[in-house]
């Protein structure tokens, strides 16, 4: 299982999900995507994105204004 890190800090909506979508296209099922985002709307957006695109949101945490999400490609 590969793990991929994406730095989407500073990107505004819809930048982060567009970037994750593009990266996820090059991943195999089961791969983990680790994303760092500063757009506050992302906290809700990533859950909606995962549900819609049939990927799994493993964890979501915020640290000093940076939101970190771990997503498992479905």
């Amino acid at each position: 299982m590969a793990e991929k890190h994406i730095n989407a800090r500073g990107l505004q909506c819809p930048g982060p999900i567009v970037q994750i979508f593009k990266e996820a296209q090059n991943c195999a099922a089961g791969d983990i995507l680790c994303v760092e985002v500063t757009d506050q709307g992302f906290k809700k957006d990533i859950a909606a994105w995962c549900k819609k695109t049939k990927n799994e949101l493993l964890s979501l945490e915020e640290e000093g204004g940076v939101i970190k999400a771990r997503i498992k490609k479905g």
């Binding site: 909506c13 819809p14 999900i17 567009v18 979508f21 593009k22 909606a48 994105w49 819609k52 695109t53």
Partner: peptide, 11 residues
């Protein structure tokens, strides 16, 4: 265009 990009990114 934000909606269009978002929708495309949602598959």
């Amino acid at each position: 265009f934000i909606i269009a990009n978002g929708a495309a990114a949602m598959g």
